Amino acid sequence: MTSTELNSLGFPKPPSETRVVVAMSGGVDSSVVAAQLAEEGYDVVGVTLQLYDHGAALAKKGACCAGIDIHDARRVSEEMGFPHYVLDYENIFQEAVIDEFADSYLAGATPVPCIRCNERVKFKDLLETAKDLNADCMATGHYIQRFSGDHGPELHSATDANRDQGYFLFSTTPEQLDFLRFPLGHLASKAETRALAARYDLAVADKPDSQDICFVPDGNYAGVIEKLRPGAAEPGDIVDTEGNVLGQHRGVLHYTVGQRRGLGIGGLDTPLYVVRLDVDKRQVIVGPKELLATRIIPVREINWLGDESFEAQKEYHISVKVRSTRPPREAIVRPLSATTAEVELLTPEEGVSPGQACVFYDPDSSRIFGGGWIWRGA
């Protein structure tokens, strides 16, 4: 390799002289990344974070960053012949992710802890650890793409739209993006990843994908929050938009905006949905479906990944995604400051909830322009 020729990770030197820390969760995706880079001759160092130790969660299939997953990551590193380290990040994860998750739910929001984990743990503390290990870059198994643009590295959606994780990575900063690599983002399907795992003869080739939130063993968010914040599930009234009491609830934290089932107020002519949560009054406010439609969304904590400053234009005609499972929709984003904006959806969306992310997409390409957090009902 000549001094001007770039290796597959974008460095002008041989893979053997390029150290890459691979964030290994113990799943098939990050295991394939580590194995592939090791096979290509890179100086690979595997790092797994122990994020929590919640008893039953350790044995739960589909979790990550706990007992069996640490074992699986270590086994892959042994099979492929590179060093592997386990870092105890339980306290950091508790403070930066779990506590906010609980407090946000108690405040009537619908948080997305996976984004905060990437932002505050994996792409912050772990990334700094990778630099301390004299790594040239850090690679992960996320399905996202990083391209070199005229103004620096750009974040792009994965080739496989069904696997794309751009919504969960919108808060990645330009500085972090400069150091990160995503070797799986170009693959057309998860089947290709599993085929690579089989080719490398990895024990995790058929391991199921992680499901739900890693520190919630059975999907029972309210149960976890009640353990973290005893007394949080105080009962109260279910009321209509006029304040008329229609029934009782067993704690605001059991409800989310847009919810229809489980209200316990049947026998009405028109189906009712949760349209708002009033934590101070301990009220669940319900109404007809049309009240869920939202056109104007206030967004804050914006991380902008465009080529110019966010405030360089009065408005941006782009696409936005307000939930991870929904497709991007046409919108106008109007900056109010460097980190706040008003987002106008050209077609109203139902069930827009504080605590969710609003992610910005280029409607004419695969590029992601960052995004921010929805912070109150409009």
Rank of each mutant, 00 (worst) to 15 (best):
L346E: 11
D237V: 02
L336V: 07
K227C: 02
A203F: 08
T270C: 13
L133M: 14
K207V: 04
S365W: 00
L187T: 07
S324P: 09
T294W: 00
G266W: 07
S31K: 09
G219Q: 05
G372D: 06
D72Y: 00
P335W: 13
R199D: 10
E308R: 15
T140W: 02
P14R: 12
G371L: 09
E301C: 06
K13F: 11
P111T: 07
V252F: 01
P174Q: 11
K122M: 11
G223D: 04
A59L: 09
L106C: 13
G370Y: 10
H142V: 02
V47I: 14
D307N: 12
D206Y: 00
R326K: 12
V20W: 05
C358H: 11
G262C: 13
V239E: 12
S189Y: 05
P208D: 12
E119C: 10
A233L: 12
A293G: 06
L292D: 14
G262A: 04
L51C: 07
G236F: 02
G355K: 10
Q248R: 08
V21G: 09
R261W: 12
A188V: 13
S324K: 08
H249E: 01
G41A: 04
V28M: 02
L169Y: 14
H54C: 04
T256C: 05
V320D: 05
P153G: 05
M24V: 03
R295F: 06
E154F: 03
